[in-house]
Design a protein around this nucleic acid. Sequence first.
DNA 1: CATGAATGAGTTTTCATTCAT
DNA 2: CATGAATGAAAACTCATTCAT
Lengths: 216, 216, 216, 216
Amino acid sequence: MEENAPSGRRSGWKQDPAAVQADILRAATEEFARNGLDGARISDIAERTRTTKRMIFYYFQDKQTLYRRVLEEAYRKIRAEEAELNLGALPPLQALRRLVEFTFDHHRRSEPFIRLVMIENIHAARHLRDSDLIARVNDSAIERIRDICTRGQATGEIRPDITPLELHWMISALCFFNVSNRPTFGTNFGDELFTEQAQARLRERVADMVVAAARA
Amino acid sequence: MEENAPSGRRSGWKQDPAAVQADILRAATEEFARNGLDGARISDIAERTRTTKRMIFYYFQDKQTLYRRVLEEAYRKIRAEEAELNLGALPPLQALRRLVEFTFDHHRRSEPFIRLVMIENIHAARHLRDSDLIARVNDSAIERIRDICTRGQATGEIRPDITPLELHWMISALCFFNVSNRPTFGTNFGDELFTEQAQARLRERVADMVVAAARA
Amino acid sequence: MEENAPSGRRSGWKQDPAAVQADILRAATEEFARNGLDGARISDIAERTRTTKRMIFYYFQDKQTLYRRVLEEAYRKIRAEEAELNLGALPPLQALRRLVEFTFDHHRRSEPFIRLVMIENIHAARHLRDSDLIARVNDSAIERIRDICTRGQATGEIRPDITPLELHWMISALCFFNVSNRPTFGTNFGDELFTEQAQARLRERVADMVVAAARA
Amino acid sequence: MEENAPSGRRSGWKQDPAAVQADILRAATEEFARNGLDGARISDIAERTRTTKRMIFYYFQDKQTLYRRVLEEAYRKIRAEEAELNLGALPPLQALRRLVEFTFDHHRRSEPFIRLVMIENIHAARHLRDSDLIARVNDSAIERIRDICTRGQATGEIRPDITPLELHWMISALCFFNVSNRPTFGTNFGDELFTEQAQARLRERVADMVVAAARA
DNA sequence: CATGAATGAGTTTTCATTCAT
DNA sequence: CATGAATGAAAACTCATTCAT
């Protein structure tokens, strides 16, 4: 027995709490992103898990709380990934272009996050508003653009009458829509804009548009 | 019992079947737009109606069919409204600007439609694909832009390497996001972009961006 | 078929709604009186019924509402039975004695009602307060005593400084406790006071006490 | 997790076992008196405690046992308080009046105890019967009245055909009901009998009634 | 054609209690 | 002796849908 117990836990036996919670959050993220808050079933989440339905309530109280935690984690993770992008070394307009391109790619790779945000918008951001964790996490998104603007407006490369928030709104709109509305857009107008080639071209068009909007 | 109460219907009346169906569609549109496909409750729809839950199934078979009919109606109505915009008389770039401005305003006034499209995207456009009514209705949206492009590219005002579909994608992204993501965007970054003044300014920025992207 | 259908319903087939509801109320009264609001199980109620659990929610919405309806019915029934007692023909003090004796007997026969009232007191009369049906039903209880007092105080047989409410309180206390606290009283002090003989004697003692308290 | 949070306990302390048990009993008394046996929640009791849910089971086995211990403690405490009343020095009828007045006041101050007794009656005194501790503790209540009767019947002040048990029953009924049924009585007939003034008057009426019933 | 009444199958959630050191 | 972590069983309640005229 001692022979089989490698360190302090493991084997067919009680996992450590943090791992169980992470496992549940992962499964819940999948289910909520796929089916929405109302469409997701706790029992389906449990089945994607190494634990039981009961443990979900044990760690997360109820469905709404679990959903909120999923949302918080999704925002936290996405902002952390974005933070890895280092723009400080680039000249302002080049930094801006880089940011747009990165965001375009990043959103494409982050469909579950995009879907969670869509779902949260359907719910009028009710759960987001309940979360105090998220406010702080989003500030960084704006700060990065504010830095570009400050630098660019100092040198005169960026027009003085545009705000970081407006630029963030533009970038978000174009990159978010590309993922969020692909199903209806594709159904209505065909998938030609969603081939790799077309997406690459769209990516540059979007970068051009935002840079043009910012340029003095 | 209470569950089935025929709400406000006067006693022995014969209702006009078409009117009853229209009444149901109106109520269903409200509920689906507000709560999504899974979030909406047939009994809540019935309560917003002059008839009963039973009649909803009588006329619309099941929840999914009702939802599909709501979606079809919403698309039909929105495209009909858009068709009233007459751009043929304007020079190409002016027509384009006019179209962007119109779309920006129109989407702002059409929140229920925007929400239905979001909801449909969450469901991977499954129901849209089932509907053959919609394909035809969307063609007109592209045709209008194609006309602008054809004219503009003939005179050299519009660059030759941009497609009507790309322009439609740009316009949609910016105008759609403005409505669809207002709850989360407002929660994360404040409501300053959603005052009347800021929206008017955003509207011109968006028009500028699209026109700039199209200009030769 | 016509041959087997006797009137307008019956056979192994849908009972009329009122009968189903009455059946549920009867079963629920038994269960709530026996086990309290929290102790009673909807599924146990359903089993004592000719219907299913689902129908209980169909007709009564939820457990609390069902309990409130049970309470209302119990009060209504008990007051209706009391109303059959006609005291108007008797001289005041004789009427009062008759009322006490009747109440003593009546409470002994109405253990389920007594238990429901005990249970409701544990719940701080929360559900009783929610019921507007009950206020009216209880007025009659006081009116009957008020009539006795008015008559007795006019003739000088009943002391002027006693109120109908006080008399009702005394009668209730003695007759209610006799039933409500029999289990603990019997356990603590033996059952000798609860033999038929002892109860008959107690009944007269109680009548004597109340009459003595009222006599001028 | 949150469910088990050890509330306000300071880190590495060794708690005194007797103190922990007393703490649990206090919290359990509050919860059981407020919500009944079925209505009380072990986790709510734990929250009112300096320890955890687990410790409740450790020290008290299960919910029923804990409830029985709460009941036993309540009876023990109440009888101990009553024992402090010394009636031996007073003439019999004066002693009786004193006892009634004391009981009236004492019950008013002992709502949790009254409620526990009601709850136990709802449960047909099942747990009281399981407790051998209680039989002994109640004998003293009767002994005190028996002493008054013996003295009073010897002097002829108290009628010979009344028993201590009957007197105890009368006193209990009037004093118990006053507290136990206040919620429903107040809801049905108003709170006028429960003002300080009205209670003082009722107290004397009750004393008069019992003394009159005992007097030869 | 139209409809009041009924319901099976699930869904979230609760709760006392035990596991394993 | 004491305890943090875990859980099976059952509870209330919901929901789209069908029954039977």
